[in-house]
Each structure stands twice: as structure tokens, then as C-alpha cells.
Amino acid sequence: MTTILFYKPYGVLCQFTDNSAGDKRQTLKDYISIPSVYPVGRLDLDSEGLLLLTNNGQLQHRLAHRQFAHLRTYYVQVERIPDEAALQRLRKGVKIKDYFTRPAIVEILLNEPKLPPRHPPIRYRKSVPTCWLKMTLTEGRNRQVRRMTAAVGFPTLRLVRVAVGGDRLGRYAERNRALTLSNLQPGQWRELTEVENKILFELVRST
């Protein structure tokens, strides 16, 4: 079995070919040369961060499907500063089209996270403040984080997935219970370490 961890940059399709009729966009093929690996779940074109790829179909299904409720943690830069009412709505679940999102762990980050610069950078409005949130979800529906923050009135400007796994309080790095970007830069990938393979095994075994 081969499983790799990739830091997906902004503007890269979460697939190996671009079938669109317009200008061709970057795909996973521009970065990853290992044959027969496929993404576990997806990250949108305009999202960044941790993406797992594997050649094990069963593993791919168990990690990606929402029924198994694996934790996914994101750093989310939003426009303006959410108040406690908005944070509570995100935590309890918000209605998006025909469904309600599951309860989430959401907190304001007091300091801007140390992330590589985005290329191109986000478009700031000088008169509008921004804020960073840490959001931990147990599902990954299409553009879910962006739709959640928009639903409570705080559009997402930048979205970076930083971890998969962790405990139910949203803690991950300090307990070796999650997979993280751990020193990767955008566009870089590597195979999982022995410790990370054990974490992956625990994630699958716990469901």
C-alpha cells in the first residue's frame, strides 16, 4: 500500500487531469509522479493544505465518506470579526440548502497562523478587518466551510486544511493522533512516516 501526504497549493485541481474546455489549470499530475494513487476526499481549487492520496480503495472510502466522521481541521480567514452568536451557529450547525451541518469545533485564533504566503494573495479591503478561525468538522461536503461562514455572514477569504484526525476537543498536534502538514511547503509531498501510518491505522480502526 502506498499513501502520501501532499500540501496542495491554491489553484491546483484535486485530480490528475483537467477536462475543462478553457485554459488548462494545474492538476495533481504537475506535482505527483507516483502512479495509481488517488485523492482521499477533495480540496477545492481555491483551497489549500493537507491532502492524502492512496492506492488503497477501501482506505480511501473509509477516510473520505462522511459516515465515518473523521475529524478535519482548517484555518479559515474570514471577512470581518464574527461575534459569539455567529460562532455558536457554526458550532451547533447551520442550514445549507437542504441539509444542516453537523456540530463543529470553532474558535477564533488570537494570532495569525504561520502559513506560507498564498499565490496570488487574497484581495484585502482596507476598510474591512479580517479574522482567522480554527474549524474542526466531521464531514466534508462540497465547499462546506465556505458555505458555513457565508451562511452566518462572514465570507471565507482563505482556507487551509491543516490536519486530519485528532481528539474530540479539536486537539491534534500535541497528541500524535492526527496527520498534519508538518514542515511541508505548498507543492511538496512525502510518504507517510511509520508514526503517521500508525495514526492512519488508528483512524480507520476507530470507525
Rank of each mutant, 00 (worst) to 15 (best):
K114F: 10
V128M: 12
I81P: 00
L133G: 06
N19T: 15
W189C: 03
K134P: 02
H119K: 10
V162T: 08
Y75L: 05
I4E: 11
L157D: 07
V128N: 08
R66K: 14
Y7S: 07
C14L: 00
V195D: 07
V12F: 05
F6H: 07
Y75N: 09
T193S: 15
D167K: 02
R146I: 02
Q26K: 15
G165P: 08
K29R: 14
A69V: 06
T207A: 10
Q67F: 00
V78F: 12
T3Q: 02
G41F: 08
P35G: 09
E196N: 04
R72N: 03
I105L: 13
I122D: 11
S20N: 10
A173S: 14
R25F: 11
G153K: 04
E191N: 10
E79M: 11
V162C: 06
G153Q: 08
D167S: 03
E107D: 12
S127L: 09
R66L: 01
N19V: 09
P120R: 10
R42I: 09
K114W: 01
Q60H: 13
E194Y: 01
L5S: 08
F201L: 11
R168S: 09
E107R: 15
R190F: 00
D46G: 01
P82D: 07
E84P: 02
D46W: 01
E112N: 13
G187I: 06
V37I: 15
L28H: 05
P129L: 02
S127P: 00
A163W: 08
R146C: 02
G57R: 13
L169M: 07
S20Y: 00
L184K: 12
L200M: 14
H70A: 01
V94P: 01
P39T: 14
D167W: 01
L59T: 15
N111P: 00
K24C: 07
R89Y: 00
W189I: 03
L50F: 13
D23R: 15
A64W: 11
L71M: 11
R147D: 03
G140D: 09
G187V: 06
Q60T: 11
R125V: 08
P129W: 00
A150R: 04
R168A: 05
R102M: 15
R158K: 12
L52Q: 09
Y10G: 02
P82A: 06
Q188G: 09
L53G: 07
G22F: 09
P129A: 12
R118F: 03
H65D: 15
R161Y: 10
A163Q: 04
L52G: 10
E107I: 01
T207N: 14
L43C: 11
N142G: 01
D83P: 06
L5M: 14
V160M: 03
E191M: 12
T180M: 09
I4V: 12
H65Q: 15
A85N: 12
L53Q: 12
L159D: 03
G93T: 02
A64V: 11
G22P: 06
N111H: 15
K114G: 01
C131R: 03
T54E: 02
V195Q: 12
E191C: 08
F68Q: 09
V40S: 13
R118C: 01
L59Y: 04
K97P: 00
T101R: 13
Q88S: 11
L51W: 12
T3D: 05
P39I: 14
